[in-house]
Protein backbone atom coordinates (compact mmCIF):
# COMPACT_ATOMS: atom_id res chain seq x y z
CA UNK A 1 0.00 0.00 0.00
CA UNK A 2 2.96 2.34 0.44
CA UNK A 3 1.59 4.07 3.52
CA UNK A 4 4.96 4.03 5.25
CA UNK A 5 6.46 6.32 2.60
CA UNK A 6 6.49 10.11 2.27
CA UNK A 7 7.34 11.93 -0.97
CA UNK A 8 10.24 14.38 -0.47
CA UNK A 9 10.92 15.54 -4.03
CA UNK A 10 10.96 14.73 -7.73
CA UNK A 11 13.77 12.93 -9.51
CA UNK A 12 13.83 15.60 -12.25
CA UNK A 13 14.80 18.22 -9.66
CA UNK A 14 17.79 16.24 -8.36
CA UNK A 15 20.30 15.50 -11.13
CA UNK A 16 23.57 13.73 -10.35
CA UNK A 17 25.92 15.89 -8.28
CA UNK A 18 23.17 17.91 -6.56
CA UNK A 19 22.10 18.14 -2.89
CA UNK A 20 18.76 19.60 -1.81
CA UNK A 21 16.83 20.14 1.42
CA UNK A 22 13.59 18.27 2.13
CA UNK A 23 11.15 17.72 4.99
CA UNK A 24 10.15 14.31 6.28
CA UNK A 25 7.70 14.00 9.17
CA UNK A 26 8.88 17.31 10.56
CA UNK A 27 12.56 16.38 10.19
CA UNK A 28 14.90 18.41 7.98
CA UNK A 29 16.70 16.16 5.52
CA UNK A 30 19.49 16.58 3.00
CA UNK A 31 18.73 14.52 -0.10
CA UNK A 32 21.56 14.16 -2.59
CA UNK A 33 22.61 12.22 -5.64
CA UNK A 34 26.20 11.12 -6.25
CA UNK A 35 28.00 11.38 -9.58
CA UNK A 36 27.16 7.75 -10.33
CA UNK A 37 23.49 8.39 -9.49
CA UNK A 38 23.24 6.90 -5.98
CA UNK A 39 20.50 8.56 -3.95
CA UNK A 40 20.87 9.30 -0.20
CA UNK A 41 18.70 11.01 2.43
CA UNK A 42 20.37 12.15 5.66
CA UNK A 43 19.54 14.26 8.67
CA UNK A 44 20.29 17.80 7.44
CA UNK A 45 22.83 18.43 10.21
CA UNK A 46 26.56 17.91 9.90
CA UNK A 47 27.85 15.74 12.78
CA UNK A 48 30.69 18.27 13.25
CA UNK A 49 28.98 21.56 14.12
CA UNK A 50 25.47 21.13 12.79
CA UNK A 51 25.77 23.00 9.49
CA UNK A 52 23.06 22.04 6.98
CA UNK A 53 24.42 19.25 4.80
CA UNK A 54 21.97 20.25 2.03
CA UNK A 55 24.19 23.32 1.59
CA UNK A 56 27.14 21.00 1.00
CA UNK A 57 28.54 19.90 -2.30
CA UNK A 58 28.82 16.60 -4.06
CA UNK A 59 32.14 15.45 -5.36
CA UNK A 60 32.06 12.02 -6.97
CA UNK A 61 30.54 9.57 -4.48
CA UNK A 62 30.87 11.90 -1.48
CA UNK A 63 29.05 14.83 0.09
CA UNK A 64 31.26 17.52 1.66
CA UNK A 65 30.00 19.96 4.28
CA UNK A 66 30.29 23.58 3.19
CA UNK A 67 31.52 24.75 6.60
CA UNK A 68 34.76 22.92 7.41
CA UNK A 69 34.76 20.51 4.52
CA UNK A 70 34.27 17.21 6.34
CA UNK A 71 33.64 14.59 3.67
CA UNK A 72 31.01 11.84 4.00
CA UNK A 73 30.64 8.67 1.89
CA UNK A 74 27.28 7.32 0.72
CA UNK A 75 27.04 5.16 3.88
CA UNK A 76 26.94 8.40 5.91
CA UNK A 77 30.37 7.76 7.48
CA UNK A 78 32.88 10.59 7.64
CA UNK A 79 35.85 9.60 5.51
CA UNK A 80 37.98 12.74 5.50
CA UNK A 81 38.61 15.76 7.75
CA UNK A 82 40.60 18.42 5.86
CA UNK A 83 42.05 19.95 9.04
CA UNK A 84 43.48 16.51 9.97
CA UNK A 85 44.30 14.97 6.61
CA UNK A 86 46.22 12.03 8.08
CA UNK A 87 43.53 11.03 10.56
CA UNK A 88 41.22 8.12 9.75
CA UNK A 89 37.93 9.48 11.17
CA UNK A 90 36.42 7.29 13.90
CA UNK A 91 33.40 5.25 12.81
CA UNK A 92 31.21 7.12 15.30
CA UNK A 93 31.31 10.22 13.07
CA UNK A 94 28.40 9.37 10.84
CA UNK A 95 25.46 11.26 9.38
CA UNK A 96 22.06 9.88 10.36
CA UNK A 97 20.74 8.09 7.28
CA UNK A 98 17.18 7.41 6.11
CA UNK A 99 15.64 4.87 3.78
CA UNK A 100 15.30 6.60 0.39
CA UNK A 101 14.12 5.23 -2.96
CA UNK A 102 12.76 6.48 -6.27
CA UNK A 103 9.62 5.20 -7.95
CA UNK A 104 7.98 6.70 -11.02
CA UNK A 105 10.17 9.81 -10.85
CA UNK A 106 9.23 10.56 -7.22
CA UNK A 107 11.75 10.43 -4.36
CA UNK A 108 10.36 8.71 -1.26
CA UNK A 109 11.68 8.43 2.28
CA UNK A 110 10.44 5.59 4.47
CA UNK A 111 10.58 4.76 8.16
CA UNK A 112 13.43 2.47 9.20
CA UNK A 113 12.46 -1.10 8.44
CA UNK A 114 9.66 -0.17 6.02
CA UNK A 115 8.73 -3.45 4.40
CA UNK A 116 6.43 -2.42 1.55
CA UNK A 117 7.25 -0.44 -1.58
CA UNK A 118 6.30 3.19 -2.31
CA UNK A 119 3.10 3.84 -4.26
CA UNK A 120 3.24 3.96 -8.06
CA UNK A 121 1.08 6.23 -10.19
CA UNK A 122 0.77 4.48 -13.53
CA UNK A 123 0.08 6.85 -16.42
CA UNK A 124 1.44 9.92 -14.63
CA UNK A 125 4.76 11.76 -15.03
CA UNK A 126 6.36 14.18 -12.55
CA UNK A 127 5.42 17.84 -13.08
CA UNK A 128 6.82 20.04 -10.29
CA UNK A 129 7.03 20.50 -6.51
CA UNK A 130 5.47 23.58 -4.89
CA UNK A 131 5.31 24.58 -1.22
CA UNK A 132 2.39 26.45 0.30
CA UNK A 133 1.06 27.72 3.64
CA UNK A 134 -2.34 26.26 2.76
CA UNK A 135 -3.36 22.90 4.25
CA UNK A 136 -4.74 19.83 2.50
CA UNK A 137 -8.37 20.83 3.10
CA UNK A 138 -7.90 24.27 1.53
CA UNK A 139 -6.06 22.72 -1.41
CA UNK A 140 -8.84 20.18 -1.92
CA UNK A 141 -11.41 22.95 -1.96
CA UNK A 142 -9.44 25.25 -4.26
CA UNK A 143 -8.53 22.50 -6.71
CA UNK A 144 -11.85 20.69 -6.89
CA UNK A 145 -9.93 17.37 -6.96
CA UNK A 146 -10.94 14.16 -5.22
CA UNK A 147 -9.25 12.88 -2.06
CA UNK A 148 -6.96 9.93 -2.75
CA UNK A 149 -4.61 7.81 -0.63
CA UNK A 150 -1.56 10.09 -0.97
CA UNK A 151 -3.31 13.39 -1.72
CA UNK A 152 -5.62 14.66 -4.44
CA UNK A 153 -6.52 13.23 -7.82
CA UNK A 154 -8.68 14.35 -10.73
CA UNK A 155 -8.90 16.07 -14.07
CA UNK A 156 -8.56 19.72 -15.10
CA UNK A 157 -9.01 21.60 -18.37
CA UNK A 158 -5.26 21.06 -18.91
CA UNK A 159 -5.47 17.30 -18.33
CA UNK A 160 -5.33 14.80 -15.49
CA UNK A 161 -3.35 15.63 -12.37
CA UNK A 162 -2.29 13.96 -9.14
CA UNK A 163 -1.13 16.06 -6.18
CA UNK A 164 0.92 14.11 -3.63
CA UNK A 165 0.79 16.14 -0.39
CA UNK A 166 3.52 16.08 2.27
CA UNK A 167 2.63 18.14 5.31
CA UNK A 168 4.83 19.49 8.08
CA UNK A 169 4.16 21.93 10.93
CA UNK A 170 5.00 24.93 8.77
CA UNK A 171 3.91 24.10 5.24
CA UNK A 172 2.41 21.69 2.75
CA UNK A 173 4.63 20.53 -0.08
CA UNK A 174 2.78 19.52 -3.24
CA UNK A 175 4.51 17.04 -5.53
CA UNK A 176 2.42 17.31 -8.68
CA UNK A 177 2.24 14.59 -11.31
CA UNK A 178 0.66 15.12 -14.73
CA UNK A 179 -1.23 12.60 -16.81
CA UNK A 180 1.03 11.63 -19.72
CA UNK A 181 -1.06 13.47 -22.33
CA UNK A 182 -1.63 16.63 -20.21
CA UNK A 183 -0.37 20.10 -21.19
CA UNK A 184 2.42 20.60 -18.63
CA UNK A 185 2.68 24.40 -18.96
CA UNK A 186 -1.08 24.87 -18.59
CA UNK A 187 -1.14 22.45 -15.64
CA UNK A 188 1.76 24.23 -13.94
CA UNK A 189 -0.11 27.57 -14.24
CA UNK A 190 -3.33 25.95 -13.00
CA UNK A 191 -1.42 24.74 -9.92
CA UNK A 192 -0.13 28.28 -9.23
CA UNK A 193 -3.75 29.42 -9.30
CA UNK A 194 -4.84 26.65 -6.93
CA UNK A 195 -2.13 27.64 -4.45
CA UNK A 196 -3.09 31.33 -4.62
CA UNK A 197 -6.78 30.56 -4.06
CA UNK A 198 -6.08 28.10 -1.24
CA UNK A 199 -3.82 30.64 0.50
CA UNK A 200 -6.41 33.41 0.15
CA UNK A 201 -8.73 31.18 2.17
CA UNK A 202 -6.05 30.57 4.79
CA UNK A 203 -5.34 34.29 5.17
CA UNK A 204 -9.02 35.32 5.04
Amino acid sequence: MGTEWVAVGLSRDLPAGVAMPALWQGRELAVWRSASGKLSAWNDRCPHRGMRLSHGFVRGETLACIYHGWVYGTSGSCIHIPAHPDLVPPATIKAETFLCVEAGGVIWVGAAGATDTPPEFAGYVPLRSVATQADAAALAQASGLEQAAQGLLGSTAAGGVCLILSTSQTKTTIHALAAKEADRVALSRWLDGVVRRAEERVLA
Binding site: G9, L10, D13, L14, P15, V18, M20, P21, S54, R128, S129, V130, A131, K171, T173
Partner: peptide, 12 residues
Protein backbone atom coordinates in the same frame (compact mmCIF):
# COMPACT_ATOMS: atom_id res chain seq x y z
CA UNK B 1 15.33 29.26 -0.99
CA UNK B 2 14.55 25.66 0.04
CA UNK B 3 11.23 25.43 -1.81
CA UNK B 4 12.37 26.40 -5.31
CA UNK B 5 13.95 23.47 -7.19
CA UNK B 6 14.03 25.22 -10.57
CA UNK B 7 15.66 28.32 -9.06
CA UNK B 8 18.25 26.01 -7.44
CA UNK B 9 19.16 24.47 -10.80
CA UNK B 10 19.15 27.89 -12.54
CA UNK B 11 21.58 29.27 -9.93
CA UNK B 12 23.82 26.24 -10.45
Amino acid sequence: LDDYPSIRLWMR
